[in-house]
């Protein structure tokens, strides 16, 4: 395979999470943004000798790269993905693939028609605790799954205002809980019924202390039920994810804050936000994810852990949850739509 050249669209938080992964895979990265932030990011990396440059022209960028990595705000995913697919480029797209299942399906169909890969970046499948859970479930260690619980919460994202606008981010369900919606479906299969409620301030006014939380009950075709709980909380809400998965033959549970492997117990002052980021004790899940995607680009390469359909279905379930939360009704997901 020729050397990887990645067109990275966007230079925000998720771009910064992906970039070291691409460099570890030996890729050259060209960053494109509409607000000039690409230059700043490229300069930061170029200073330390990395092959990161800023691109000024999207058309020119698409003509020259192996693949694009869409790390922009959700409302722009559709247009950018369709342009990349039309240029014959593989696409890695940050979750959610789109704000509606309809848009996600359109992107997916375009990728199929162009013969390129479309990878929804559901990175939680590459977090080691979740990967270990899935391996055990797939091996049958828990028997048939009956009831699954997932929580995910942290301080409300303040670094980019679009997160606080449900019209752009889809809100806490579409942006945050979609991670666990995908994991629930990965473990217990397709979802047929959704009920959800959202509470708190959905549309952030950028006053810091605004909380929004949502709860969703998913019913799987197997009869299993999943509780998904999401929280964009107060500024000092420590980021934490948990799961508890019970089947006929056993139980697995995990709390991301309970066994960090390493923790800082004092640093002189109480840090705002998370303070010193704790070092991961394993390979970066972002690197593992990108490597898995790249491997599938070879002729006859393995299928990645996350398929295009997985990304579409996650959006479909999240969209149903948003709809349920808005209307107060239960949303049935017809088999024909899945």
């Amino acid at each position: 395979m020729p050397p990887l050249h990645i067109g990275m669209l966007g230079a925000g938080g998720i771009a910064r999470a992906h970039l070291p992964g691409w460099l570890a895979l030996g890729a050259r990265v060209s960053v494109y943004t509409v607000d000039g932030s690409a230059r700043k990011l490229a300069a930061e990396y170029a200073e330390s000798g990395h092959a990161v440059t800023a691109a000024d022209d999207l058309g020119g960028l698409l003509a020259g790269v192996t693949a694009v990595d869409i790390c922009t705000p959700t409302p722009t995913h559709r247009e950018l993905a369709l342009a990349a697919v039309a240029a014959g480029r593989h696409v890695v797209c940050e979750k959610p693939l789109a704000l509606t299942a309809r848009d996600a399906e359109e992107i997916a169909a375009a990728a199929v028609a162009s013969g390129v890969r479309l990878h929804p970046a559901h990175v939680v499948r590459y977090f080691p605790a979740y990967a270990a859970l899935r391996t055990a479930v797939a091996r049958g260690d828990l028997g048939e799954l009956a009831v699954l619980r997932f929580t995910r919460g942290g301080a409300r994202p303040q670094w980019a205002p679009w997160f606080g606008d449900p019209a752009q981010s889809g809100g806490v369900i579409m942006d945050l809980m979609i991670h666990d919606i995908d994991i629930a479906r990965w473990l217990a299969g397709d979802v047929i019924r959704v009920h959800a409620r959202t509470r708190g301030v959905e549309h952030a006014t950028r006053t810091p202390a605004e909380v929004v939380t949502a709860t969703a009950v998913l019913t799987h075709a197997s009869g299993a039920v999943s509780h998904i709980n999401g929280l964009w909380g107060l500024p000092d809400q420590r980021f934490r994810t948990t799961f508890r998965v019970a089947g006929a033959d056993g139980l697995l549970h995990h709390d991301s804050t309970a066994v960090p492997g390493f923790r800082i117990t004092a640093q002189g002052v109480r840090a705002a936000n998370e303070g010193i980021p704790t070092s991961p004790m394993t390979e970066s899940p972002f690197l593992a994810e990108l490597r898995d995607f790249v491997a599938s680009w070879r002729l006859g390469g393995p299928e990645p852990r996350v398929s295009t359909r997985d990304g579409v279905e996650a959006v479909r379930i999240a969209e149903a949850a948003v709809e349920s939360s808005r209307t107060g009704r239960v949303i049935e997901i017809e088999e024909a739509a899945r």
Partner: peptide, 25 residues
């Protein structure tokens, strides 16, 4: 109240629901 139940736990032993999630407004 919204509730979903199943009896996938101990299905071979009892007929009643053994698992359930209940949302109360």
């Amino acid at each position: 109240v919204y509730a979903q139940t199943n009896n996938l736990l101990h299905a071979d032993e009892v007929a009643v629901e053994t698992a359930g999630l209940v949302s109360v407004t």
